[in-house]
C-alpha cells in the first residue's frame, strides 16, 4: 500500500481546468441550460412571448372584458371599436373575450396532446431502439403504415371512431403524431446505443431499466425537448383544423379553430371574425416552431456556434 500511495502522490495529476469548487460547478451546469437559451438572440423573445401566452392562458378569463358566451343583441356583427376592441360575432359575442378564453383551451389541448405524443412516442422509440431485432422491426413497420397516412387523416379516423368532442380531438391529435415522434426518438436512441458507455454499463451488470433511464434518457433529452416543442406547434394547428371542420370543440365553446370556422361564413361582411383567430393561430405556431429551431441549434453540438 505504501508504494501505491507514493505512486498516487507522484502522479497527483493536475486537472486540466484547476478552478472552482465542485458543488459550484455542478450547480452551474444545471442552470447554464436556461442561460444558454436566454442568451440566444432570438430565443429570449420567444421565451418572453411564450411566457405571456401562458399568462394569457391562465389569467385570460380574468382579463377578458365580457363573458365569452354572453350575446349582445344590440351589437350583432359589430366592427372592432371602442366597446368591443375586436368586434362581435353574429350572435353578438365579444371576439376579444372569446379569443382570450380560447387561449386556455388551445394551450391545454395542445400541451396534453403533445404530452400523449411525448410519453407514448418516447416509450415506443426507446423500446424499439433498445430491444432491436424483431420487436424493432414489427414496431417500426406498424409506424411506417401509420406514417403513410397524413396525420390529420389519421386524426380524422380516430375522431370518427370516438365521436366529435374536444377531448377526443386532443386524443386524436396526440395519437396521430406518435409514429413520427417514435421514429425520431428511435433514431436518436440508436446513436446512443452504439456508444461505448452502454456496453460498459452492461458489462458492469446494470439492469435494462437502469440503462434506459440513466444512460439513454439523459443523453437524448435535448433532442426530445426540441421535437416536443415542434410537436406542440403542430398540435395547435391540428386541433384547430379538427375544430374547423366541426370534429373538435363544439359550439358554443370558445376555441380558435371553431371561431375561424364560424367566421368563414361572414368573411365578406365581417372580416374580423376569421382574421383575429387566424392571426392568433399563425403567430403562436410560428413562434413555437421557430423556438424549436432555435433550441435545436442550441442543443445540437454540431451546429455552428
Amino acid at each position: 500500500m505504501a508504494r501505491l500511495k507514493e505512486v498516487t502522490q507522484s502522479l497527483h495529476a493536475p486537472l486540466m481546468k484547476e478552478e472552482k469548487n465542485p458543488a459550484l460547478v455542478q450547480k452551474k451546469l444545471k442552470v447554464s441550460m436556461f442561460w444558454k437559451v436566454w442568451n440566444h438572440k432570438r430565443a429570449k423573445y420567444h421565451l418572453i412571448f411564450l411566457f405571456l401566452f401562458l399568462v394569457m392562458g391562465i389569467f385570460g378569463p380574468m382579463i377578458a372584458p365580457f363573458d365569452p358566451n354572453k350575446p349582445f343583441y344590440d351589437a350583432l356583427l359589430q366592427a372592432p371599436g371602442k366597446e368591443h376592441l375586436l368586434g362581435t360575432d353574429a350572435l353578438g359575442r365579444d371576439v376579444l373575450s372569446r379569443l382570450l378564453y380560447g387561449t386556455r383551451v388551445t394551450l391545454t389541448v395542445s400541451i396534453l396532446a403533445a404530452g400523449i405524443t411525448f410519453v407514448a412516442g418516447t416509450l415506443l422509440g426507446l423500446i424499439s431502439a433498445y430491444v432491436g431485432g424483431i420487436v424493432d422491426n414489427i414496431l417500426m413497420r406498424i409506424m411506417d403504415i401509420l406514417l403513410a397516412l397524413p396525420s390529420i387523416i389519421l386524426a380524422l379516423a380516430i375522431v370518427a371512431v370516438l365521436g366529435p368532442s374536444l377531448t377526443n380531438a386532443m386524443i386524436a391529435v396526440g395519437v396521430s403524431s406518435i409514429p413520427s415522434f417514435a421514429r425520431l426518438t428511435r433514431s436518436a436512441a440508436l446513436t446512443i446505443k452504439s456508444s461505448g458507455y452502454i456496453e460498459a454499463s452492461r458489462s458492469i451488470g446494470s439492469s435494462h431499466s437502469w440503462i434506459i433511464m440513466r444512460q439513454f434518457l439523459p443523453n437524448i433529452t435535448g433532442v426530445l425537448v426540441v421535437y416536443t416543442t415542434l410537436f406542440i406547434g403542430g398540435a395547435i394547428l391540428d386541433t384547430a383544423a379538427l375544430s374547423f371542420i366541426g370534429l373538435g370543440a363544439q359550439p358554443p365553446a370558445p376555441e380558435w379553430g371553431t371561431m375561424l370556422s364560424e367566421g368563414k361564413n361572414y368573411i365578406y361582411e365581417a372580416w374580423w371574425l376569421a382574421t383575429f383567430p387566424g392571426i392568433a393561430i399563425t403567430v403562436v405556431v410560428f413562434v413555437i416552431n421557430d423556438f424549436g429551431d432555435v433550441l435545436r441549434d442550441i442543443f445540437d453540438p454540431k451546429s455552428v456556434n
Binding site: 456496453e199 454499463s201 451488470g205 446494470s206 439492469s207 437502469w210
Partner: peptide, 30 residues
C-alpha cells in the same frame, strides 16, 4: 461482479451526462 471490463476508448465509454462519482457508483447500484 467478479469479472469486469476496461475499454479502449475512455471518452466513449463514459456517459457525458454523469459525474465521475455517478459513473463509478453505477456498479454499486446495480
Amino acid at each position: 461482479k467478479q469479472v469486469q471490463m476496461v475499454f479502449q476508448d475512455p471518452m466513449d465509454s463514459m456517459n457525458p451526462k454523469m459525474t465521475i462519482g455517478e459513473i463509478m457508483a453505477e456498479p454499486l447500484i446495480s
